[in-house]
Amino acid sequence: MDDIPDRADIKVTPPVIFSFYLAIGFLFAWGSSLHVLPGVLARGLGISLLLAAGAVAATAILAMNRQGTPIHPRHGTTALVGEGPYRFTRNPLYLSLVTIYFGLALLLNSFWMILFGIALAVTLHKMVILAEERYLEDKFGEAYLAYKAKVNRWL
């Protein structure tokens, strides 16, 4: 029997990473009055980002469900998804998480949350995305490499 798990080698799941940065960001936002934009502009952009992130996440989940592949990164992928937002980004759910974070950062108009949003994107890239890409290359070979060659990682 093969003892190699059929999933990416992810140590910490994306929701845990997101929650960590969100808690830290909220603490810094609460303790600081450093703003990034005028209030009305920041709130408008924040709401826009949250709505866009929700739309991207919803369509990504629908696309994965149509292909019958699990959403949770600790489960094995059963199919490559190249429809919906997966035509434009290889990681629409992670893009949505980062966009939600930036939307909240703008709603709070927090300079510190903007900085932590960048750290969130870097952490997701290093701890999750690279491991998932190695797994998908091993599992799907040329089909994934072809997809990877035509679709950007983030946008």
Results as ranks from 00 to 15, higher is better:
residue 59 T to K: 05
residue 66 R to N: 11
residue 41 L to F: 15
residue 57 A to K: 01
residue 47 I to L: 11
residue 61 I to L: 07
residue 67 Q to C: 10
residue 50 L to P: 04
residue 41 L to Y: 12
residue 44 G to H: 07
residue 37 L to H: 01
residue 41 L to G: 08
residue 45 L to Y: 13
residue 36 V to M: 13
residue 58 A to W: 10
residue 65 N to W: 11
residue 53 A to G: 03
residue 64 M to E: 03
residue 38 P to M: 11
residue 49 L to Y: 11
residue 45 L to Q: 09
residue 62 L to W: 11
residue 62 L to H: 12
residue 49 L to P: 00
residue 48 S to C: 11
residue 61 I to F: 03
residue 54 G to M: 02
residue 37 L to M: 08
residue 40 V to Y: 12
residue 57 A to D: 04
residue 60 A to Q: 00
residue 70 P to V: 01
residue 52 A to L: 14
residue 55 A to L: 12
residue 35 H to R: 15
residue 64 M to N: 00
residue 40 V to D: 13
residue 50 L to K: 04
residue 61 I to M: 06
residue 43 R to G: 09
residue 60 A to D: 00
residue 56 V to N: 02
residue 46 G to V: 03
residue 55 A to Q: 08
residue 49 L to K: 03
residue 44 G to V: 04
residue 47 I to Q: 08
residue 51 L to C: 08
residue 44 G to Q: 07
residue 55 A to C: 10
residue 68 G to D: 05
residue 52 A to M: 08
residue 53 A to P: 00
residue 48 S to G: 15
residue 67 Q to H: 14
residue 52 A to K: 07
residue 64 M to D: 00
residue 54 G to L: 06
residue 70 P to S: 00
residue 52 A to W: 12
residue 46 G to F: 05
residue 46 G to I: 02
residue 51 L to D: 09
residue 54 G to N: 07
residue 68 G to R: 02
residue 46 G to L: 01
residue 67 Q to Y: 10
residue 60 A to R: 00
residue 53 A to H: 03
residue 50 L to Y: 09
residue 61 I to W: 02
residue 63 A to M: 04
residue 61 I to R: 06
residue 42 A to E: 09
residue 49 L to M: 11
residue 37 L to Q: 02
residue 49 L to E: 03
residue 45 L to P: 05
residue 49 L to N: 05
residue 37 L to A: 05
residue 47 I to V: 15
residue 37 L to N: 04
residue 63 A to F: 02
